[in-house]
Write a protein that binds this DNA or RNA. Structure first.
Lengths: 181, 181
DNA sequence: GTCTATAATTTGATAGAC
DNA sequence: GTCTATCAAATTATAGAC
């Protein structure tokens, strides 16, 4: 029964992810985290020595989970639109579940002022997601006949569209806008 | 000859815009601004009483300039692709001129933690840009025969694509990625 | 593993002299 | 319009007791 109770480390990661997605990396503090989970900021430092280390871990966990949900690209649908829709649905659920945008979209927006290790993890998100889309799309009936560059362009367009769509839907406070994309 | 020398207020706005586009609203301070233009932070407060007031003014000026460059939508091209390309070129030049993303894209990413007056100006950017695109597109040979909703969807897709594209191009440190969109 | 206490710095903002 | 001086609060981070 006790396995369901998240440890302090996971609770820190959960709250940090939520706060970054809401306010950005520069928009939360160790004290926000500590207060939110009911400990002191020194305890947060025990688990994550620096803010950069925490940010990097949050981004890595987010990316791992995102790609884990997508699964094996070799088992993705054979219809190209279905592949795109699979990714669209994942971005969409991130938006609806907690009304937040993509963590790595936020980090990308701030990236020029981010600690290197955080920026590197955010960059990896886009590399890995684009690679997954390329792999999945090149198996589809559409992609089989396409040069690699055309597949890559489609993958990039999809990611850019969804990232931008989340930003617009959020600031316009209208989640329906995302579904028009 | 002296007309070319920007006043303190404009120099504050210029630097604030650059810093927000680089690090986000929470990623710059009045002292950063002051040091950058060679005054003290109290002088910055003389021109802009609060950080929120400065942020809002930066966003409004950015939006005004953006739409001013686009010009009258009734004089936009009659080819729909040319209209989209006009907007694409504007986003692209923002990226190339100073290697930065769209100011309001950054603000949108942080919007949940922004002062109301700043968030309102960022929101207005997307409203005004989308409206411009709707007006311009509905005049095109393509748009003339389309229902308003289809035109609006196209407009939103274009803005989302370019905003997302800027974010990806910047974090991947590859401006060429934007041109694939 | 969490706490108290605190250091060192930075932040947004104000008062008042010039 | 810009300055010096300063405030109160918040920030990341550390030392050491429990």
């Amino acid at each position: 029964m006790a396995e369901n109770v998240a440890g302090t480390e996971d609770r820190i990661l959960d709250l940090a992810e939520l706060l970054i997605r809401k306010n950005g990396y520069n928009g939360f503090s160790f004290r926000d985290i500590a207060a939110g989970i009911g400990v002191k900021s020194a305890s947060v430092h025990y688990h994550f020595p620096t803010k950069a280390a925490l940010g990097a871990r949050v981004a890595k966990r987010y990316t791992d989970r995102f790609l884990d949900t997508l699964g094996d690209p070799d088992k993705a649908p054979e219809d190209a639109n279905a592949v795109i829709d699979k990714v669209r649905a994942l971005f969409r659920s991130a938006m609806l579940e907690d009304g937040r945008v993509c963590l790595c979209g936020v980090l990308a927006a701030e990236s020029a002022g981010l600690p290197d290790e955080v920026a590197a993890e955010a960059k990896a998100f886009f590399t890995r997601l684009t690679n997954w889309l390329c792999a999945a799309l090149s198996r589809t009936t559409w992609g089989k006949d396409q040069p690699a560059e055309a597949v890559r362009t489609q993958a990039l367009r999809a990611v850019a569209l969804f990232e931008g769509g989340l930003l617009i839907a959020r600031i316009q406070n209208d989640t329906d806008l995302f579904d028009l994309l």
